[in-house]
């Protein structure tokens, strides 16, 4: 399958941050990368001749001249192979295509103050945000939560930011007194958070108890889609049947079959890939559809969700 046009690049350097986190610097080959706003992700195409991957990663930094950009990749335990490929096989010179970029996690430009909370690999969008906010002279504080053995790596990663702006905790937010810090925030503060599901739940609950309104609470539930039971997707218009293997997503199966399916974030966060389900029962794994929509089962986000039934018929 021919990949859509994108920006050709190679891996210029690999930095091991922790046993599960690696930073990859991509260097543009030929045409330079377009500018990206803080909070953006890029969809990268890479892999071997036998297996191509298209995964989305937050951009942690980019040079103003468009020659380089960096991503941090966590080796996902349930990886369908993409993060394992980057950790185990990618090295200097490995070709990667930047297929697209989009920003689903910007800061509110009119906010007077920003409180950024992250845990683990959830730091990635905030590396870009904190540096941009710092450069703009904006008012912000970043609290990062990690395991004790990972703390030195994050201290190094965040060393270029002023100590008064960045706090790294090797305890959970509850133990670190985070709720108290949140309660002390001024009414104009916007809250942003990103991290593992348990952390996200804790922040959501604390924010609600303290009276943060929805308009000031911003989060990125971004995760690597996992595999599952194989199934068959049927395209209603043509009757075409496409097998979805256990280690590929529905979206990938459509793309590999040459179907021009819509998509943007590839992580169940934006809703751009929504398609109508005409028959079969979807297994929803996204953060976009409402509970009611999930129960009705008439819509599926192809980038992360799968099927409970052996076949799924889509209006495509």
């Amino acid at each position: 399958m021919v990949e859509r046009s994108g920006y050709l690049a190679v891996i210029a350097s690999v930095e091991v941050l922790t046993p599960t986190l690696r930073k990859f610097v991509l260097a543009a080959q030929g045409v330079r990368f377009p500018a990206v706003s803080a909070g953006s992700h890029v969809v990268l195409g890479f892999g071997s001749a036998a297996r191509r991957y298209k995964n989305a990663y937050s951009v942690v930094s980019a040079t103003p001249d468009g020659r380089e950009l960096s991503v941090i990749v966590r080796r996902a335990p349930q990886s369908r192979g993409g993060s394992a490929f980057l950790h185990d096989q990618a090295q200097d010179g490995t070709p990667v295509t930047v297929l697209s970029s989009a920003n689903l996690f910007p800061v509110s430009k009119t906010a007077k103050r920003h409180l950024l909370l992250s845990a683990g690999v959830g730091i990635t969008p905030f590396l870009a945000h904190a540096r941009t906010l710092e450069a703009e002279g904006a008012d912000y504080t970043l609290h990062h939560f990690c395991r004790p053995e990972e703390k030195p790596a994050f201290v190094t990663l965040l060393a270029d930011l002023p100590p008064g702006r960045v706090f790294i905790h090797d305890r959970p937010p509850e133990d670190a007194g985070m709720k108290h810090h949140m309660a002390e925030e001024g009414i104009a503060t916007h809250l942003y958070f990103c991290g593992p599901e348990g952390f996200m739940g804790w922040v959501e609950q604390a924010a609600a108890q303290l009276g943060f309104v929805a308009a000031k609470v911003h989060s990125e539930h971004f995760f690597v889609p996992e595999g599952g039971k194989p199934f068959t997707v049927v395209l209603a218009s043509s009757g075409q049947r496409i097998a979805v293997a256990g280690d590929e997503t529905l979206l990938e199966a459509l793309e590999n079959a040459g179907v021009d399916a819509p998509c943007m974030c590839r992580g169940g966060a934006c809703g751009a890939c929504a398609l109508e389900v005409m028959d079969g029962v979807p297994e929803h794994r996204d953060h976009v559809l409402t509970e009611q929509e999930k129960t009705e089962g008439r819509t599926i986000l192809t980038c992360v969700s799968r099927a409970r039934t052996d076949t799924l018929t889509l209006n495509l």
Partner: peptide
Amino acid sequence: RLARERVGLR
């Protein structure tokens, strides 16, 4: 008052 107010006010 609002310039000094903390989060949670309606």
